[in-house]
């Protein structure tokens, strides 16, 4: 029967799309668990280095590190973390939209911005809007290593040390739970010691080996790195769960669409049959 051939092909193609989205959903679900484990695994390190920094802020080092001193802000540095791939709902767009708002207030306050990007979406976005991109890295995969982001961080810290930046922020999606990802901007430098919590009492200082300056320099770099890395693994966990949710709703929508089309198809078929019968009956009556 020739009725509704177009509808049938349409249903077929939607069914194929649904198969793909369902497969992507399942892949994302299994990756999501792994990225969440990885996120948990990085927490002890950042917690511990945070504790040391907190101790340091309340000790009396003979050398105050540059990262702890505030200075008038003329240029803001941003390390923006995004996913490499799309098809994860509004994850990256939400992040960029929130960031654009912040950037607008900064530029209204007369601040310039220098950006380092991690991930392809951020690189594409900031090149598109013509931002001043200083360093970038992408294609880190689902199990990123700290070593791969050292270069980007070092580039930004150099800018800071050479006085071309007065503040450094990291921008990423914070993992709240599987359904919720919160775009956030965290300040890295100057380090806000008062936010780090309770202090050790008394007047004391560390014994430094070889000397305070070198040890502190290394420690600060590691601290910043751990914060950015934490952001990166959280953003990864966000990406996978956002993709899973997006693909699930795509599969559901495809299912709904198929149902509707099937109904239309059945109605059309039914109508064709009825008409045919009516014609036959009409023809017989005329004879």
């Amino acid at each position: 029967m020739a009725v509704g051939k177009e509808i049938r092909t349409k249903i077929g193609s939607i069914r194929n799309t649904q198969k793909i989205t369902r497969a992507m959903e399942m892949v994302a679900a299994s990756k999501m668990r792994k990225t969440q484990d990885r996120m948990q695994a990085t927490r002890p390190y950042s917690k511990k280095i945070g504790r040391i920094i907190k101790h340091l802020a309340h000790a009396n080092p003979e050398y105050k590190h540059a990262f702890m001193l505030e200075r008038p802000v003329k240029t803001v540095g941003l390390i923006v973390i995004s996913s490499d791939r799309g098809l994860c709902g509004g994850l990256n767009s939400n992040l960029f939209r929130m960031l654009l708002k912040r950037m607008k207030t900064w530029s209204e306050a007369g601040c310039e911005m220098r950006v380092a990007t991690i991930g392809q979406k951020a690189a594409g976005f900031f090149n598109g809007i013509g931002a001043n991109v200083v360093a970038q890295v992408s294609r880190l995969g689902d199990a990123p290593h700290l070593e791969s982001i050292i270069g980007v961080i070092k580039a930004m810290l150099d800018e800071y040390n050479e006085g071309r930046l007065d503040e450094l922020h990291v921008v990423y999606n914070e993992f709240v739970n599987t359904m919720t990802q919160r775009p956030s901007v965290d300040q890295l430098i100057p380090i806000r010691a008062e936010e780090l919590g309770e202090e050790l009492k008394g007047h004391w200082d560390y014994i430094y080996e070889p000397d305070a300056k070198e040890v502190l320099d290394d420690l600060m770099i590691r601290y910043i790195e751990s914060l950015v890395f934490q952001g990166l693994v959280e953003n990864n966990a966000c990406e996978q769960s956002a993709r899973m949710v997006a693909m699930k709703s795509a599969s559901d929508n495809a299912g709904k669409l198929i149902k509707e089309l099937q109904l239309i198809y059945n109605k059309a078929r039914q109508a064709a049959i009825t008409q045919e019968i009516a014609e036959i009956v009409g023809g017989a009556a005329a004879v």
Binding site: G128, V152, K154
Partner: peptide, 23 residues
């Protein structure tokens, strides 16, 4: 590593075709 990261940013800025596509 830092130099590498900077170089990548510069290369991308020059790669105009890629830029338009992304935008």
């Amino acid at each position: 590593a830092a130099i590498e990261a900077k170089k990548r940013a510069e290369e991308m800025l020059q790669d105009k075709s890629g830029r338009i596509d992304y935008a």
